[in-house]
């Protein structure tokens, strides 16, 4: 399943890169890309983790920058 989320307060380019790497570590994520310029997160994930994928991605981003929000 592929979904696009809007993000807020993605303030630095290399944080975006780090967030992407962090999200990719989540189990069940097939592909992830954090777009710094458009502040969009594109996630492709296994249907089995659909319920908590957003929470996990949020946590991963907050780990890098606690100001960053993902709007679900």
């Amino acid at each position: 399943m592929k979904k696009i989320f809007k993000m807020q307060n993605v303030d630095c380019a290399h944080c975006a890169m780090k967030m992407q790497n962090e999200i990719l570590k989540i189990e069940g994520i097939i592909s992830a890309s954090v777009n710094f310029l458009t502040q969009r997160l594109t996630l492709e994930f296994d249907d089995s983790i659909q319920e908590d994928v957003l929470d996990k991605a949020r946590k991963a981003c907050k780990k890098i920058d606690s100001d960053t929000e993902i709007i679900g």
Partner: peptide
């Protein structure tokens, strides 16, 4: 420095906002 960075980022985001 961070404020500057954030303002500049916002500015470059604005430039493609119309297109988005």
């Amino acid at each position: 420095g961070q404020l500057f960075e954030s303002v500049a980022t916002e500015k470059s985001r604005q430039s493609i906002k119309e297109l988005l």
